[in-house]
Structures are given as C-alpha cells and as structure tokens.
Design a protein around this nucleic acid. Sequence first.
DNA 1: CAGCCTGGTGTGGTCAGACCACAGAGTCTA
DNA 2: TAGACTCTGTGGTCTGACCACACCAGGCTG
Lengths: 230, 230
Amino acid sequence: MSGYGAVLRHVEAELSAGRLRVGRQLPAERKLAEDLGVSRATVREAIRVLQAMGVVRSGVGSGPDAGTTVIADPAGGLGAALRLHLATRRLPMSDLVGTRVMIESHSVRAAAARPDHPDLARAAELLTRMDAPDLDADTFHQLDADFHVALTAAAGNAVNTAIMAALRDAIHRTVLDAVQALPDWSRTAVRLRREHRSILRAVQAGDGDLAATRVTRHVEGFHREWVRHA
Amino acid sequence: MSGYGAVLRHVEAELSAGRLRVGRQLPAERKLAEDLGVSRATVREAIRVLQAMGVVRSGVGSGPDAGTTVIADPAGGLGAALRLHLATRRLPMSDLVGTRVMIESHSVRAAAARPDHPDLARAAELLTRMDAPDLDADTFHQLDADFHVALTAAAGNAVNTAIMAALRDAIHRTVLDAVQALPDWSRTAVRLRREHRSILRAVQAGDGDLAATRVTRHVEGFHREWVRHA
DNA sequence: CAGCCTGGTGTGGTCAGACCACAGAGTCTA
DNA sequence: TAGACTCTGTGGTCTGACCACACCAGGCTG
C-alpha cells in the first residue's frame, strides 16, 4: 500500500487499539518515518491530514506543547470540511441553516427533559455577558454562537454538538459580513437577546415543544433577515 | 503567514471567487509551488488535506483522470473525520446512532411531502435488489446503507445527506463485524427487508409521522440487537 | 497504406538530506 | 545566586532528485 495511506492507517489502528490516547504524544516525525519505513515527507503529509481533521495538534520547540499531541476536536475538522464545501457551492447555505434548525430544535427538546444540565447554566451566563451595552458585533456574534452550541451540548449528544459547532465555524464569516449590512444592528441585537431569553426560559421550564418552536423561529428569522440584506 | 496555510487559503479563495470550479483542474504541483513562492513539499501537504476533505482528487499519468481535479465529496471528508474521532473514543457510537435517527426521522417526514422524488424510486429499486436470495451480508449491508442514504437524499437537504453518508462510512466496519456475531443473520435480514418496505410505503403514502416512527424503531432496534451481541 | 511500437513529456508519489526557528534543560560565569 | 550561554530535540520548510504512470506523436514495420 501507499506510504501516505499506511501512516494514516497505522495511526488510526493505534487509536482504535487504545495504544494512542487523547493527550498523549505521537512519536517524533523522524522516528515515525523510520519505524514505518517511509520518508519524513510522507509522514508529514499524513500528520497534516490528522491535524486538519482535529485529531492532532503540533507544536515546535520543546516542552509540553511541543511535538505532536493527540487531541479531540471533531468540530474543528468538520468545520473546515464544511467551509471548504461551502466554497465549492455544493453545499448551499440554506441547507446548512436547515440542518442547524433540525439539530437545535431536536436538542432543545431533549435538553428540556434535563433542565439542570450544567451547559444550560453556561448558556445563561453567556446571555448575561451578551447584555453588556458596549459590545461590538463581532464579540456579540461569538457569544451568540457559543450560546447556541451550549444549548445543543445540554442535550448530551457529542456528535450533534460537534456538528453544531462545525456549522457555526462554517457560517461564521458569512454572518459577520451580513451583520455589517444590517440597517439597524442595535435594534436587531435587542430582538436577538429577547429571543434567546425566551428560548432558554422554555427549556428551563421543561417545555420542549415551545423551546423547539422558538428556536426554529429565531434561527430561520435571522437567516431570512440576513439573506434579505446580503 | 505559514507556507502550508497560505496554499490552503489560496485554494479556498479561488473556490470562493468562482475561479476554481468543480470539475476543473488545479495547476500542477510544481507550477502552484512556483506561483505561491513555496516548495513543492509544502504544496503537497495542502493538497493532501484537500484530498482528505473530499474537495480534490489526484491522479498520476496524463489524460482526463490525471492531475488534481476539484470534486465535491463532502461525505468522504466528513466520514473520514468521524471515523478518526470514533477511534479516539470521544464520539461514542451511541451518539452516532442518535444523530442518525434524528436525521432520518426528520428526512422521511420531509420526503413524505414529495412522494414522487426520484431518490424514492432509487430507494425502491435498492429494496428490490436486496430481495435477491443469495446475497452475502456484506453486499446486503451496502445496499442497506445506500437505501437509507437515498431516503435521506429524498428530503432534499445536501448537508443532511452528506452527514448521513458520512455516518454510514464511519459505522460501516463496525456493523459488518457485528453482523458476523448475530446468531441468525437470515432471520434478521427478513425482518430488515420487511421494515424497509414498511418505511418506504409510509413515505410514499405521504404519512411522514408514521414513516418517522417506523424508521426510528428500525434503526434503534437494529442498533440494540447489534450491541447486545457485540 | 494500416498497424504497432517506441521515445518524449508532464503528471503525482516518494525519497534523502539539509537548514531554520523555537523552547526547554543543563551548564557555565560573573 | 542570578543571569547568560550552549546543547538538544522538536516541527516547518526547502532543494533536487528519481520513480511509475499514461497519453501522444513520430517513426518503423508489415
């Protein structure tokens, strides 16, 4: 088999077998190359891919942050892939929004069944920070995105949470551009804050159906507004 | 900025600007390296990543299949990422199944509103092929997976379809192993065929709620059975 | 003339070896 | 003792080379 693929399969096998765990380090590139009988360039190609997938992080120098470490950032990898395919125009933005609505409405339904989940407290704290009067649009959107991810995380499905975070990454820049074009941003921000609170209230009250309805209206409404001004 | 990241951002920018379209070719590695003022090794690392994301396909030699071509295979890229993170044990299989149930039940609901969608005809044809009596488990599961993806595709959301296909890729090997362990595979196959038909019937009858209930039972039931014997 | 075959050319795949910046650890010096 | 120094190992990048491959054009052969 090809050298590049062999490295990838080797690492995946090590992960599957549990010999390589999150937080541990891969062998140094030069050593890995020697072990597998390939060149360092080939090893690097494979490691780059793992890096792009969010499976591994590399740092130069020495010390704890140096070398190649196994991490677990599925959202990073999925987000990069979604962003690229968004650029190819094969994944329309409207479908990304549709998926987001599906995940969020499903998640708030599930989260309403466990209103004491710590991620809901985190979501509430994010809303408080969004109340700061002198927030610029960039920070506001960042908190906004974190709020929605926290809401999803409260449902307890790691895959959905990762996809949700990935969708946020993929959409991020587009939304920022859109926000610039809105006629009255501060007015929109007031409405978004109100809607966020009403969604969270419904979840904490255990009313999943209401929360789902509200989050659907919230996301689709903002998307429509933002498409109108794009 | 770093050489590697510069190449990646350059290609993404070319895609976003529409100067690079699906089906077209990237410049040759040597030329791209010269154009961007980096080495060929650096260009290759970036291209490997694009390849792993399903954005690009490379072929040696000359002719139409040679060189690096822009493609659009989001499922491939997402599937690889999911498989890797499954290996790190940070994405539990039960969550993958949960996401799958969410997407499928949501999709059959939407598909029921357009019962004449061509993907439904394709799904029906796949079921016919699954009726062949001398089918081995491997082929059966392949058709099974294609059926579920076709069902999802009939809902018309490309992102959901890509994620569904990615989940299939990620789960594929595990399911194959599980099927080996089932006590009476042919008996299970008979049940699966019946359930598939009943799901498709509900969709074609326009009864989205019924289809959603059935597909949820179908997927969760098979997952439980397969976990029990793992 | 028709058919084969044989270089030529350009592609990605891989390799070996080199140099760099970096960051920590250990050592030497004032 | 505190600071400056070298040493070592890391990933990041570059250079230049060779390979297998597949097409294509030209010449050769029948």
